[in-house]
Design a protein around this nucleic acid. Structure first.
Lengths: 124, 124
DNA sequence: TCACTGTTGAGACGGTATTATCATTTTGGT
DNA sequence: ACCAAAATGATAATACCGTCTCAACAGTGA
């Protein structure tokens, strides 16, 4: 009725832990297949979904992109989306002055910032 | 072979011009039907697409949302997404310090900022 | 090791957003 | 007003994601 420690889940967890950046389901699949060759996409979706519900994973939505997943509990941060390789990277820090952009009467609850460009690997 | 001035296109243009905020295809349909009752969704998609290609419209992508469309040529700005009514509003201004978030070796080309909360109408 | 039951993989299925098709209507120029 | 071509609307067809189904498999406690 609950969680078993399977080869597939170990592989998926390892993929996410090793990446150090948010991964899409497809990226998870490709990476985790190294530790669990026959791994299927349904298992990836199932596992990601259950971990998100359990709170151990956080879904990251970017404009026009399939969701990525990263470990929960990191401190507030934003993301960089490489236009060349399509990978998403974590950034540190947060811009100032967001509150002042909010129109009068509007209540600000949260925000997202996404930077676009080329990652170090693709820029060279 | 090209553009005719039809009742449908006038209605779609009016919907966008009057809104003063980015509209989704569905919002365009509903609004434009006031000026063109039988308007079909296919015409909306066709028209939006051709205007985007022609450069008169800009597609606005927000995380996890269907695209919205706004007139091209406005000055650089960002958007506010109301969690209650799901409408998207234009903001003025732009936060500082984005460049400093960029990791070494990465080249920054553009950015997006989305604020979330309640619009004035929904907050009251 | 055995048995029970959660888990998996492959493919079917469903939901949604967008595009293609095509018969009919509308527009713009003459 | 007439006509050729563009535009439209209804609906079918795609495309994309993610979930469900189910037979076979594998993890766990006894």
């Amino acid at each position: 009725m609950t969680k078993r420690d399977t080869q597939q889940r170990r592989a998926i967890r390892a993929a996410i832990d090793d990446a150090n950046r948010p991964l899409s389901p497809r990226e998870v699949l490709e990476s985790a297949r190294q530790g669990s060759p026959g791994l299927g996409i349904a298992t990836v979706y199932r596992t990601l979904k259950s971990w998100v519900e359990a709170g151990g994973l956080t879904q990251v939505d970017l404009p026009g992109e399939p969701p990525r997943y990263e470990a929960t509990g990191k401190q507030h941060h934003h993301h960089f989306h490489c236009r060349s390789c399509d990978r998403v990277y974590e950034l540190q820090g947060c811009p100032e002055g967001l509150r002042s952009l909010t129109p009068p009467g509007f209540s600000l609850e949260s925000h997202e910032v996404v930077l676009y460009g080329r990652c170090a690997e693709c820029a060279s």
